[in-house]
Design a protein around this nucleic acid. Sequence first.
DNA 1: TGGCGGCGTTCTGGATACAATATCCAATCC
DNA 2: GGATTGGATATTGTATCCAGAACGCCGCCA
Lengths: 243, 243
Amino acid sequence: MTLLSDSLETGITVAIDADGARSLATETRVDQVARHLRAAIVNGRLKPGDRIRQEAIAAELGTSRIPVREALRQLESEGLISLIPYSGARVARVDAEEYEEIYLMREHLEPLAIRESLPRLTARHFSEIHDLVAQIERTEDPTDVLDLDRRFHLLTYSAAARPRLLQMIEGFWNSTQQYRRVFYRLAGDRLISHSGNVSLTHMEHRLLVDALERRDADTADNIVRVHIRRTRLTLARYREVFD
Amino acid sequence: MTLLSDSLETGITVAIDADGARSLATETRVDQVARHLRAAIVNGRLKPGDRIRQEAIAAELGTSRIPVREALRQLESEGLISLIPYSGARVARVDAEEYEEIYLMREHLEPLAIRESLPRLTARHFSEIHDLVAQIERTEDPTDVLDLDRRFHLLTYSAAARPRLLQMIEGFWNSTQQYRRVFYRLAGDRLISHSGNVSLTHMEHRLLVDALERRDADTADNIVRVHIRRTRLTLARYREVFD
DNA sequence: TGGCGGCGTTCTGGATACAATATCCAATCC
DNA sequence: GGATTGGATATTGTATCCAGAACGCCGCCA
């Protein structure tokens, strides 16, 4: 069973809206199309290299091609697709080098995000965080774990009053989600294998939550940074992720 | 006399293309419109809050509104304009908080960029860099200095083989250029005032170039980071920049 | 047999035409 | 007199239509 079928509306922005006054800015069809495609790419229904025909998407969503085209421009800026003039749109391929680049940037930005978020986390956030951690620990399916893990981390950043920063970080996660999925299937045995009862991932989550609750910025910063760096370096051994 | 009238084609990407094989990807009108508007915003011909009417732009460039609309989507993703459904596009306003956010991110990303760029700088780069430094030192007009300074710094990063990183950094500079311009006019006296013959800015440039030529990554990193932080903190005293 | 060039199909890029929404102003009501 | 509502107008959002580029197919020829 796969969670988060289509609309994994689990972005940071949405998370922010959740406890604020939701900005009821009239949603145009362009936004709907963009959301639809973004979700399809992030959850893996559309795979890297897949061609995206405007007409097909338009028909699928019952609109004309115009909103589709605008949505494609937007997704290109987010790095999710690549747009080749007169040729078409394809789901962006991320090679080992770009993956490394993204992790480098994450390594420098996410510690900042956790520092900015940490002092602003409320009881509501922690309640959600604990729920997620518990849910992750009792979920078996690796794909589901991966999506929940994404939600968990974005949630820990979500209290930071830095919209641009959060948007970027969400973009990083989106761009790499499907590769992380492959990676997880390859290297996952090691990552998930329970020593005693708690996997490495679970342990990291608990340590991070603990640091957040103690408002211990330095420790939180370190956990985040080290985790990203370790993942980045580990990657070198799994180049086949990128076929 | 104002340099860089319209097309200050001084982006990092262009700088990169300069020494590589220029990707002759057929340029579509959307790109032309985007370039045109981007330049207009960065060089200050369009000011924060200014409304952008699709029809007007279309007429100005001799196209229909369709390419304009797609360009606007793109610029919105870059943070240069804000797009309100059924209301219109306006040049983005950056308030003190967002300005601070951008500088925070710059503080974390530009040292990374200089580190990645430093080992790859070639004689050609240095030649251009020296030219720019010299040109800056003999330029009087503050606006021109500012644009040249932008080119200088982007150039020092341009050797980094990290396209996403460079694009982000360029976006930061673009978003804030006009505010930096105001800031420079307000606080500029102090910044430009020559003690002896060399201003603070000039000194920083020389130190940075020296570190780059010595391939001294730590020093270069430090100069960049400290410069950005100092600017960020100084800002607190000039809130009137944001009207 | 294998490469190469013309031709048609398919799809994208852009223009034109129409629908929907916001904005502004005046008339109306309390 | 001030707030409110209704409509005219300007501008955006979307659909339809046309031109042109890319890609594949087929036959031709070395």
